[in-house]
Computed example of a mutant assay.
Amino acid sequence: MDIKKVNLHEKFDSFTEHWSPKIVGELNGQHVKVAKFKGEFVMHKHEHEDEMFMVIEGALQIELENKTLHINAGEFVVIPKGTLHKPIALEEVKVLLFEPNTTLNTGNVENEFTVKDLDIL
Protein backbone atom coordinates (compact mmCIF):
# COMPACT_ATOMS: atom_id res chain seq x y z
CA MET A 1 0.00 0.00 0.00
CA ASP A 2 1.34 3.39 -1.01
CA ILE A 3 0.38 6.05 1.55
CA LYS A 4 0.40 9.58 0.14
CA LYS A 5 -0.44 12.95 1.59
CA VAL A 6 -3.06 15.07 -0.16
CA ASN A 7 -2.49 18.76 -0.91
CA LEU A 8 -5.93 20.38 -1.06
CA HIS A 9 -4.66 23.50 -2.83
CA GLU A 10 -3.23 21.37 -5.65
CA LYS A 11 -6.45 19.36 -5.92
CA PHE A 12 -8.63 22.49 -6.10
CA ASP A 13 -6.27 24.05 -8.67
CA SER A 14 -6.62 20.98 -10.93
CA PHE A 15 -10.23 21.68 -12.00
CA THR A 16 -12.56 24.61 -12.71
CA GLU A 17 -16.10 23.21 -12.97
CA HIS A 18 -18.70 23.87 -10.29
CA TRP A 19 -21.00 21.35 -8.60
CA SER A 20 -18.88 18.40 -9.79
CA PRO A 21 -17.31 16.64 -6.78
CA LYS A 22 -13.95 14.91 -7.21
CA ILE A 23 -12.75 12.00 -5.07
CA VAL A 24 -9.44 12.71 -3.31
CA GLY A 25 -9.44 9.93 -0.72
CA GLU A 26 -11.31 7.01 0.78
CA LEU A 27 -11.67 5.70 4.31
CA ASN A 28 -14.02 3.20 5.94
CA GLY A 29 -16.48 3.16 3.05
CA GLN A 30 -16.46 6.96 2.86
CA HIS A 31 -15.30 9.17 0.03
CA VAL A 32 -13.36 12.33 0.77
CA LYS A 33 -14.32 14.75 -1.99
CA VAL A 34 -13.42 18.26 -3.07
CA ALA A 35 -15.82 20.49 -4.97
CA LYS A 36 -16.22 24.06 -6.08
CA PHE A 37 -19.67 25.55 -5.67
CA LYS A 38 -21.02 28.70 -7.30
CA GLY A 39 -24.65 29.73 -7.61
CA GLU A 40 -27.64 27.76 -6.34
CA PHE A 41 -27.86 24.00 -6.26
CA VAL A 42 -31.09 22.02 -6.03
CA MET A 43 -33.16 21.36 -2.90
CA HIS A 44 -32.68 17.67 -2.13
CA LYS A 45 -32.18 15.09 0.59
CA HIS A 46 -30.29 11.87 1.11
CA GLU A 47 -32.51 9.10 2.46
CA HIS A 48 -29.73 6.92 3.88
CA GLU A 49 -26.64 9.09 4.33
CA ASP A 50 -25.52 12.00 6.46
CA GLU A 51 -23.47 14.56 4.53
CA MET A 52 -20.64 16.74 5.83
CA PHE A 53 -19.71 20.05 4.19
CA MET A 54 -16.43 21.65 5.32
CA VAL A 55 -15.69 25.06 3.84
CA ILE A 56 -12.03 25.43 2.93
CA GLU A 57 -12.30 28.81 1.19
CA GLY A 58 -15.22 31.22 0.80
CA ALA A 59 -18.64 31.19 2.42
CA LEU A 60 -21.46 28.71 1.91
CA GLN A 61 -25.14 29.02 2.68
CA ILE A 62 -27.27 25.94 3.14
CA GLU A 63 -30.99 26.54 2.92
CA LEU A 64 -33.05 24.22 5.08
CA GLU A 65 -36.84 24.01 5.36
CA ASN A 66 -37.00 26.46 8.28
CA LYS A 67 -33.70 28.40 8.24
CA THR A 68 -30.50 29.13 6.35
CA LEU A 69 -27.10 28.12 7.71
CA HIS A 70 -24.01 30.26 7.01
CA ILE A 71 -20.76 28.27 6.95
CA ASN A 72 -17.47 30.14 6.64
CA ALA A 73 -13.92 28.97 5.89
CA GLY A 74 -12.72 26.69 8.66
CA GLU A 75 -16.25 25.62 9.61
CA PHE A 76 -18.31 22.56 8.76
CA VAL A 77 -21.84 21.28 9.11
CA VAL A 78 -23.30 17.78 9.09
CA ILE A 79 -26.65 17.50 7.33
CA PRO A 80 -28.50 14.48 8.79
CA LYS A 81 -30.01 11.93 6.42
CA GLY A 82 -33.55 12.76 5.35
CA THR A 83 -33.02 16.54 5.75
CA LEU A 84 -34.00 18.73 2.79
CA HIS A 85 -31.16 21.13 1.99
CA LYS A 86 -29.95 23.39 -0.81
CA PRO A 87 -26.36 24.67 -0.96
CA ILE A 88 -25.96 28.23 -2.21
CA ALA A 89 -22.66 29.93 -3.05
CA LEU A 90 -22.92 33.64 -3.86
CA GLU A 91 -19.23 33.55 -4.84
CA GLU A 92 -17.07 30.53 -5.55
CA VAL A 93 -16.65 28.31 -2.50
CA LYS A 94 -14.18 25.45 -2.07
CA VAL A 95 -15.64 22.60 -0.07
CA LEU A 96 -14.41 19.32 1.37
CA LEU A 97 -17.12 16.64 1.58
CA PHE A 98 -17.24 13.40 3.58
CA GLU A 99 -19.90 11.00 2.38
CA PRO A 100 -20.52 7.27 2.08
CA ASN A 101 -19.25 6.02 -1.27
CA THR A 102 -22.85 5.32 -2.34
CA THR A 103 -23.95 8.98 -2.00
CA LEU A 104 -25.34 10.63 -5.14
CA ASN A 105 -24.59 14.36 -5.07
CA THR A 106 -28.23 15.32 -5.78
CA GLY A 107 -29.71 12.75 -3.40
CA ASN A 108 -33.35 12.05 -4.22
CA VAL A 109 -33.32 14.34 -7.29
CA GLU A 110 -31.81 13.68 -10.70
CA ASN A 111 -31.20 16.70 -12.92
CA GLU A 112 -28.44 18.58 -14.74
CA PHE A 113 -26.41 18.76 -11.49
CA THR A 114 -26.36 14.97 -11.00
CA VAL A 115 -22.87 13.43 -11.29
CA LYS A 116 -22.88 9.63 -11.25
CA ASP A 117 -19.29 8.88 -12.27
CA LEU A 118 -16.95 10.93 -10.11
CA ASP A 119 -13.43 11.75 -11.21
CA ILE A 120 -10.62 10.58 -8.95
CA LEU A 121 -7.87 13.17 -8.53
Rank of each mutant, 00 (worst) to 15 (best):
G39R: 06
G39C: 07
E40N: 12
E40D: 11
E40S: 15
E40P: 09
F41M: 03
F41R: 02
F41E: 00
V42Q: 02
V42E: 02
M43E: 10
M43N: 06
M43S: 09
K45G: 00
K45R: 06
K45S: 03
H46W: 01
H46I: 01
E47D: 13
E47Y: 00
E47I: 00
E47Q: 05
H48W: 00
H48T: 12
H48R: 02
H48A: 03
E49R: 06
D50Y: 03
M52C: 10
M52Y: 00
M52N: 03
M52L: 14
M52A: 07
M54S: 11
V55Q: 09
I56G: 06
I56F: 09
I56K: 12
I56Y: 14
E57L: 11
E57F: 06
E57M: 08
E57G: 08
G58M: 07
G58Y: 02
G58Q: 04
G58W: 02
A59E: 15
A59V: 14
A59S: 13
L60K: 07
L60E: 04
Q61G: 03
Q61V: 02
Q61A: 06
I62N: 05
I62A: 04
I62H: 04
E63V: 14
L64P: 09
E65F: 01
N66A: 08
N66I: 12
N66E: 14
N66V: 14
N66P: 02
N66W: 01
N66Y: 07
K67R: 13
K67P: 03
T68A: 07
L69S: 05
H70M: 13
H70W: 03
H70K: 13
H70A: 12
H70F: 06
H70S: 14
I71P: 12
I71G: 12
N72R: 12
N72G: 11
N72M: 11
A73L: 11
A73E: 13
A73F: 07
A73K: 14
A73D: 09
G74R: 11
G74Q: 11
E75Y: 07
E75A: 09
E75W: 08
